[in-house]
Every structure is written in C-alpha cells, then in structure tokens.
C-alpha cells in the first residue's frame, strides 16, 4: 500500500514536470502537443477508492492549468476522464476488469491500446472544446483533437510499455 502511494506520488510530480517543461512546448507543426500527464489517470490503481482518483485528477489538471494559463480546461478534462475510466476499462479489458485483476504491466497490447485510445480521445475532445469554447469552430476542435490524440496515444503507449517492462 505504502509503495503504491510512493510510486503514484512520484509519477504525479514527474509527469507534471515533464508535461509543463517539455511536452507543452513541442508545438509540432505549429500546434500539436502531446498531453502525457493523463498516463497518471490511466495507471491509477484500480482497487483504490474512486473518490481519491477524482480528487487527484482534479489537482493534476489544476496544476497543469496553472502552468499553462488555461483557466480550468485541463482540470475539467481530467476529472471527466477519471470519472469515465471504469467504462473504458470495461470495454477494453472485459472480464479481466470484472474480476478486478487487471495488471497494466502484463496485459496484452491490444487491450491496452484500446483503453488508451478511448481515454485519450475523450480527454482531448473535452479539452479542446472547452479551450476553443466556440461551437462554430467545430472543425478546428476536431482537427486539434485528432492530431494531438495521435501524438499523445503513441507517446503514452511507448511510455507505459517501456516502463512496465523494466520492472520485471
């Protein structure tokens, strides 16, 4: 229990720092940035209380907002992702999730990709809708969501796979 707390705290701080110092300033092709801090929400222990997940996601999003001067958009998207996480877990892992025995370090890659993809697209769609905040720019929202999602998904999968293999 204590080690899980430690691992998650370190992950929280590290992902936040990497996000605000490096990832928010990549601006690939002018506007495409990966938002890798959501790995924290993806990998949060399943058996933990969901209230804790909601609160920590809110805090994480808020910190990112403070660094990026973006009001509350990251916090809103993170809280929504945290709340909707069980749905994504159920669709991508199926029975494994029902038995509460999902281990992110040794699931098959296909389910992991489904899980990360669903979560990322939801998160980014809310993020960019709130950021642009103008329904007439729906094309801009969709364009930003699509390209940033691709970037984020690739990075997230790489990071999750690389670091879970290490622990074996």
């Amino acid at each position: 229990m204590n080690s899980a707390l430690g691992v998650n705290s370190i992950r929280f701080v590290l992902l936040l720092l990497i996000q605000v110092v490096i990832c928010s300033h990549i601006n690939f092709l002018g506007y495409i940035n990966p938002y890798i801090y959501i790995i924290f929400i993806f990998l949060f222990p399943i058996r933990e209380d969901r209230l804790v997940l909601l609160l920590t996601s809110f805090l994480l999003g808020m910190f990112v907002d403070v660094f990026m001067d973006s009001g509350g958009v990251h916090a809103a998207a993170s809280v929504f992702l945290a709340y909707a996480r069980p749905v994504f877990l159920k669709t991508s892992f199926g029975m494994l999730y029902e038995h509460q025995s999902v281990k992110f370090s040794n699931t098959d890659l296909g389910s992991l990709i489904t899980y990360v993809t669903l979560g990322t697209i939801t998160h980014h769609l809310i993020l960019f809708s709130l950021e642009v905040f103008n329904i007439s720019s729906i094309l801009l929202i969709l364009k930003k969501t699509l390209f940033s999602s691709i970037f984020t998904i690739i990075l997230c999968i790489l990071i999750i796979v690389l670091f879970s293999r290490n622990k074996k």
């Binding site: 209230l51 909601l54 609160l55 809110f58 999003g61 907002d65 009001g71 509350g72 958009v73 916090a75 809103a76 809280v79 929504f80 945290a82 709340y83 709130l130 905040f133």
Partner: peptide
C-alpha cells in the same frame, strides 16, 4: 456527486 462538484468548479473557472 463529487464528480459533478469538481466538474462544475472547472467549468466555472473555464
């Protein structure tokens, strides 16, 4: 309820 509470805070800030 917690989700609603946090989400509305975020929306208000946004």
């Amino acid at each position: 309820l917690l989700f609603l509470f946090l989400f509305s805070i975020c929306l208000a800030l946004t």
